[in-house]
Amino acid sequence: MSALDWDRTETRVALRESLADMQARAGSGLLEHLIDAEIPWIGISTHDGGAGGDLGDAAIAVRTLATMELDAPIAETGLVCGWALASCGLQLERQLMAPAFELGTSLTGIAVDGVVRVSGHVDEVPGALAAQAIITTVEIDGVLQLCAVAIADAAVTSTVNLADESRCSLTYVSAPVVASAPLAAGLTRFDLLARLALARAIQSCGALTELRDLTIGYARTREQFGRPLSDLQVIAQMLAELAELTLSAQAAVAAAIERPGTWQSAIAKSVTGRAARRAAALAHQVHGAMGMSQEYPLGRLTTRLWSWTEEAGRPELWEAWIGEQFLLQSSPVLWDTVVNGVRGESA
């Protein structure tokens, strides 16, 4: 479509095609196929127990799966939890993992005879129904540790987001920690949340691209007043705005993948979230009543976009964080911060 449509390198186009093919063949058994193909562990080096490939490869998989009929912690396992474990020197188990990174949720831990046991409550955990372990931070003896805890040891209250994706509450009472390591130097809980935010931004980018194409397709074929909707200038202008929003999301996400870190992830979450809100509204307006039907695919995209925008820090949260980081500098200079970032974060 547009020359800027994100990431058209050959290997990544091939990955996208093989995922689409897998979906077509597997139907409801897609998750097993993805596991067989090691998709959840792409982007983590084989040395750390992953399937190899880089963040860009993982992003392509996550972005492609974002529009498929699947509720499983694929992005959460490798791109989010796998990265956190590898950052803290922990070996990756070949299991599905669910990040409990939302702020304000935390477990308390006590070490007894060398075994750490955790208690407490974590909310809004994505993918906990399919995963084997949650990855979260626990303060143990005054040190913040990254811990894996088995989901089988939790009392699980199942809830879902707007898109019917599992977002569970888990309660632990003196459950043993499976693996733990101190949070790597320079890493905070906020940085972990930012990684989840990046995953949501990548997913949103995939959904936005499909939302744009679906809406353009509908406007071309749906006829009213004796001509396609897209012949109406007001509709054509809405389609153009939809494309602009998609472009900005693609660019912000591409930058966050090229220069990973909390700064760019925050920017990507802000830009994709803002774009998603406006784009979802435009897409529904162009579709008219049809978009409200459960049978039609639009709602599957917009409900995801609405949820992903509010999860892992809504745009306003990340914008406030960016603004605060900027203003904390002595004599803050906007332009230099745009070019170089703050506190050693790369822009």
Binding site: L247, A255, S270, V271, E319, G323, L334
Partner: peptide, 22 residues
């Protein structure tokens, strides 16, 4: 360092950064 709405500045930084990429 502590305006009422630091997000207003943050959003500007996010937007300009993204237009630069495009």
């Amino acid at each position: 360092p502590q305006p009422a709405d630091p997000g207003a500045v943050g959003r500007i930084i996010a937007d300009i950064s993204t237009f630069r990429v495009v």
